[in-house]
Amino acid sequence: MSEPSLEVAGLFFSYPDGHQALRGVDLHVHHGERVALLGPNGAGKTTLLLHLNGILRPDGGTVRVAGLDVSDEAAMEVRRRVGLVFQDPDDQLFMPTVGQDVAFGPANFGLVGAELEARVAAALGAVSMLDAIDRAPHHLSYGERRRVAIATVLAMMPEILVLDEPTSNLDPASRRELIDVLRALPITQLVVTHDLPFALELCPRALVMDEGSIVAGDDTVDVLSDEILMKAHRLELPYRFDPRGGTGR
């Protein structure tokens, strides 16, 4: 197989208060794949994400992004390659206007002038938010802010897009728009979510994380159909939902 977009091996991490959040995480995501990362609250999913671009540093183990080790020297390049979309768009959108916010990433990596403007327009176009370029983030709806947050990392042309709970707090129509946007993006994606139908619709493969390590990883339909596995890790499908019935891929 080709070089994985993302390769995590034997990752350990404890917070300063002693809480061990990661206990040997192993996973890989191949180029062009869309992978769901499932698991109950407190499983260490968000902690894992913060390791993917070196914001947190592991106590042991390695993270490689397209063959590049996440290290102090490579921090900037890794951050360009890993597009991290945070759970709360209000944390992600901090500039006075949408356009300035989308430009923040690529400008930090040295892009200027017409090239920068073209990059901003392309990223906003990819999430159908180009009309909002001069608006203030707090004047947008929650769903629109979520899509702009995705544009802010797309503008860095990352190798892999990493999303933390992208459907949380969205109304059904905004959720549908988000799914359409993500499906249309020709980019490797790792998606942390509690929204199992969303995972099923978007991602052919799913990983289950619990108590700081990956406990299962398989075809999403098979993972969601495994009642014992699901119950053991506090995962539950919506009432009367049959993962085998709707393989919406």
């Binding site: 914001i55 951050r79 945070f86 709360d88 901090f94 430009a103 923040f104 400008a107 930090n108 990392v153």
Partner: peptide
């Protein structure tokens, strides 16, 4: 705490201490 999360989001997009100009 939000300030800390915002800072993380900034660092994740390559912030090194200098605000870039745009537009």
């Amino acid at each position: 705490e939000r300030g800390e999360r915002v800072h993380q989001a900034m660092v994740a997009r390559g912030f090194t201490g200098r605000m870039p100009t745009y537009g």
